[in-house]
């Protein structure tokens, strides 16, 4: 070890314990997206839950805003190695949507207005672990960060927290999404540093 990067001391030690391996803390809020930012007026926004047999249930923007809301404050971890502490969101727990439908599915695919997809085990988005968020830090979520609404699933790398999300599709089998098909880990636990296929 001693012969690598001589003279390097580092600055992030103070966050040990809160910082997953290989991450660094950031004060800013970087934007990571594969393409341009889509424009989705709330007037034509809807959120659709689709069952494994094809049945579906949709919520308009106003219907979604009338659902029970929560204000989680969470640490988030991006696979590009930044972590941001104590981010404040407002939104609907995914349990509220998922409770509206009986299912035998074990997995879910989040689908976005721009065609992005990401896959998750169903148990990772239930029991208060995931939200459909429409506000960040007290303000309406901006388009570059996924507005009008995105998923927030803080215990997994943040690419799982799909921006511009338009629905959840329940599936019996695991269906790898956009980044999961492009070399990134299927599950993405930051504390086990599951970044890539081989991790």
């Amino acid at each position: 070890m001693g012969d690598l990067s001589p003279g390097f001391h580092g600055k992030s030690h103070a966050f040990a314990g809160r910082l997953p391996p290989g991450q660094y803390p950031t004060e800013s809020f970087p934007v990571l997206s594969a393409g341009p930012t889509p424009d989705i007026p709330t007037g034509r926004w809807s959120f659709t839950l689709t069952g494994e047999a094809g049945e579906s249930r949709s919520w308009s923007w106003d219907e979604m805003m009338a659902l029970p809301q929560e204000e989680p404050t969470v640490d988030i971890h991006c696979v590009t190695r930044w972590s941001k502490f104590d981010t404040r969101w407002r939104g609907v727990p995914l349990d509220v949507f998922l409770d509206a439908m009986e299912t035998a599915a074990d997995f879910v695919v989040a689908e976005s207005f721009d065609g992005y997809t990401t896959n998750l085990p169903l148990e990772d988005v239930t029991d208060g672990k995931a939200w459909l968020a429409h506000s960040f830090d007290g303000f309406a979520l901006s388009p570059d960060h996924g507005g009008p609404a995105r998923l927030v699933i803080p215990h997994l790398y943040f690419w799982k927290s799909a921006k511009w999300v338009k629905g959840l599709r329940l599936t019996l089998d695991n269906e790898p999404g956009f980044w999961e098909s492009a070399g990134y880990h299927d599950y993405g636990d930051p504390w086990r540093e599951q970044r890539y296929w081989s991790d």
Partner: peptide, 16 residues
């Protein structure tokens, strides 16, 4: 690529 630096005390930092 990711680049990893290691300090004398073993602390490591990585950036892309």
């Amino acid at each position: 690529v990711d680049v990893r630096l290691t300090a004398d005390d073993g602390y490591q930092a990585v950036r892309s």
